[in-house]
Nucleic acid binder design. Sequence first.
DNA 1: CGTCCAACTTGATTCATATCAAAGCCGTAT
DNA 2: ATACGGCTTTGATATGAATCAAGTTGGACG
Lengths: 248, 248
Amino acid sequence: MAQAIPLRKHSPLKASCHQCSLSNLCLPLAIEENDLDRLEDIVQQGRIFNRGEHIFDQSTPFRSCFAVKSGSIKTSIITEGGEEQVTGFFMPGELVGLDSMGSKTYARTAKALERTSVCEFPVDKLEELTGKLPELQHHMYHMMSQEIQNSHQLAMLLSKNTAEERIAALLLSLSSRFQRRRLSPTNFSLPMARNDIANFLGLAVETVSRVFTRFQNQGLIRARGREVELLDVEALQAVTREFSRQGC
Amino acid sequence: MAQAIPLRKHSPLKASCHQCSLSNLCLPLAIEENDLDRLEDIVQQGRIFNRGEHIFDQSTPFRSCFAVKSGSIKTSIITEGGEEQVTGFFMPGELVGLDSMGSKTYARTAKALERTSVCEFPVDKLEELTGKLPELQHHMYHMMSQEIQNSHQLAMLLSKNTAEERIAALLLSLSSRFQRRRLSPTNFSLPMARNDIANFLGLAVETVSRVFTRFQNQGLIRARGREVELLDVEALQAVTREFSRQGC
DNA sequence: CGTCCAACTTGATTCATATCAAAGCCGTAT
DNA sequence: ATACGGCTTTGATATGAATCAAGTTGGACG
């Protein structure tokens, strides 16, 4: 489904938010069509990262936020003890690096889980622009507050819920995020390893594995490796109870 | 240690950030002395809330952020099942409501834990002002990103740490927050009940109680009801390991 | 085509913390 | 003073998930 290439005044190296299929999920959704050019002016057409490559590293100077165009990203903290703590997964249309806004250095490391392309928003330019476009500033506040809420929701999930509830919540979160992109909400492939899931959800890998098979035996899902099919979304929702989370 | 009262042009109903002893912790720290007037113009001298009174309620229209002047506040979410989930405690100099920025309604309920006075920042005015003062905008981003980081740190604490580690982390967090206000970091009174601590840390009340007595028996703290004395901060830090959190 | 290594699964045992149950403490109101 | 109710502590038991210990699968690569 190739897109027609319109005549644009910008250099071909610039990303074109106008044509981006993710513009309804990403920063552009905040602003008027005619202000979009100003956003395009600061966006840098991002590199492509291969699986395992770092988009940025914890403690290095904070320069940019990144929007995922395709692929997926995992963010994590390396503790003093050298252990990794996975803090989130980011899918196309989602913005990585908000947790470092206003800081001098990146608070986390971001790593491509697969071949991934991104758009880059240099923070100095971004802050300048949000100072001029109130809607964009408002949207930044909104996205950041959402991230606060999401991580509190995560904290709740981790502190009050069983392994089954956590995993059901993650599956449903991924499901709804695929759905937003008009992909199948019931049939997708996990971008991350069991290990990452376990780490993110505060569980042992073995437990994750066991819950997957338990869900499978109960007819809630079908899973072969990273391929997952949700067979009974209702039942999964019942498992998570009050946790209808929109993002991890 | 009464402060001299300078002649000011503002109405006596307005808060005076210039003289506030918390100005080095609060929003004013971001801006120049001469821009401070503009912040003062939008600040509303807050009401005093009695113990148990709500500063705002989850799902009601989001109008303002609040800075704690004295006392303390607890924020929580009420889940569909009607259960309370404590999401944070706020002490003087700290800003409540950031997690609702950019949203139409408050994401949480905020309740005074004791007699508490606040300063109120109406969001419409605040957003307008941050659009004009880049340093203030930057500071808002900074504070919001800090809150994202804090809640991820909390998620980590809840998912990977034992009851002892969580409680030690909370005690040390409170300690350093008292210290920032030039109060004793080792001798203070907890603003919240054991129940709130348990809820916040994802533990049973009984566990919190047991850990308190265990710490006491080990000579780490002395606790009588809400009065707490930290006897061995080093040891407490050792308990929390890598968790040197600056805020809950 | 087979070897190797990492990712994943399965089973047995242990341990921290929840849960259930009951008693003690303290402030407040009668 | 005394009694009530909420908060806190203590004890006994149950349980979900971690840990330890083998396997098993599957993809990458010679």
